[in-house]
């Protein structure tokens, strides 16, 4: 059982009125490597409410990817508990609760863009008509209509990454996990994709976990920013954003925005100096 004080201090992302979609409780993960154990996650406790947009930020090696992979049951924690929609992550995975976007687009070169997006639909047994309809819909959502018949290697990096997001949106996963999806793109493309992602989130009301290295990106996108620090990987701060849901790009010049960005930077620095 948890003590009252622990419950009070429970870091929370999202409003407490609904039951959390993802609940991590004193999560621990140690990798056994040839150079000895690596403590990738230590005592990570976090609630993520339905419909929130949670960013994970922190220096390289602080366990952001590992935490996301734990949620998606791609990695198995060595301690603590983790539930997704009240199930274990693996049960949630079998129930096809996740859309996962990796750092690279990872489209299959032997499939056209359209067939790449249809891949999860084929696997999950959607009918042909439904596949076509959904592919058309998400292609429009990521502004790639007309590229359906092209092969991935005929498209630019930014377009490939948008196609991989479309692939994750094609089926009805209520949780979208994105691991530095825009890390390899240039600033201008990145801005546009950020804007589009916010619109998408607004339209689909998914719960999004988003890993990034960039403070402005985290502040611009999120309802909650989780600051992490390395060795061992842990959460040092959870910042709730007061920014409105409607966010034009130039919101980044407002004092509120700069204020939050400052707080995130302080949190990151504190994690280092400990």
């Amino acid at each position: 059982m948890l003590s009252d004080e622990e419950i009070k201090n429970w870091p929370e992302a999202g409003t407490a009125t609904t039951a959390p979609v993802i609940r991590a409780d004193h999560l621990d993960l140690t990798f056994q490597t040839n150079d000895g154990p690596v403590h990738a996650l230590k005592d990570v406790s976090l609630d993520i409410a339905k419909g929130s947009f949670v960013s994970f930020i922190g220096p390289s090696g602080c366990g952001k990817t590992t935490f996301l992979r734990c949620i998606a049951a791609l990695e198995h924690p060595t301690g603590g508990s983790l539930t997704v929609n009240g199930m274990t992550p693996d049960e949630a995975r079998r129930a096809r609760a996740y859309g996962y976007v990796f750092q690279a687009a990872g489209l299959y070169p032997w499939r056209t863009i359209g067939r790449n997006i249809a891949l999860p639909l084929e696997i999950m047994g959607y009918s042909r008509a439904e596949q076509a309809e959904r592919v058309a819909r998400v292609l429009e959502l990521v502004e790639l209509s007309g590229f359906e018949k092209k092969f991935p290697w005929q498209l630019s990096g930014g377009m490939q990454q948008r196609a991989s997001i479309a692939r994750a949106l094609a089926f009805d996963a209520d949780i979208l996990l994105m691991d530095e999806p825009f890390g390899a793109l240039d600033e201008i493309v990145r801005d546009r994709l950020n804007e589009e992602l916010l619109k998408l989130w607004d339209k689909t009301e998914k719960t999004i976990g988003f890993v990034t290295h960039s403070i402005p990106e985290a502040v611009y996108l999120s309802t909650h920013i989780v600051v992490m620090s390395p060795r061992p990987g842990r959460i040092t701060d959870v910042i709730e954003s007061p920014l409105p849901k409607e966010r034009p790009l130039d919101i980044r010049d407002t004092p509120e925005f700069i204020e939050i960005a400052h707080r995130v930077r302080e949190g990151l620095r504190a994690g280092y100096e400990e």
Partner: peptide, 23 residues
């Protein structure tokens, strides 16, 4: 990464073979 993707879809061995590993 490709194998992880198939895992997030909870694809069966046969599906992974047919859509990913054979191509």
């Amino acid at each position: 990464m490709q194998r992880d993707l198939m895992r997030t879809y909870a694809a069966t061995w046969g599906q992974t073979l047919w859509t990913l590993r054979l191509p």
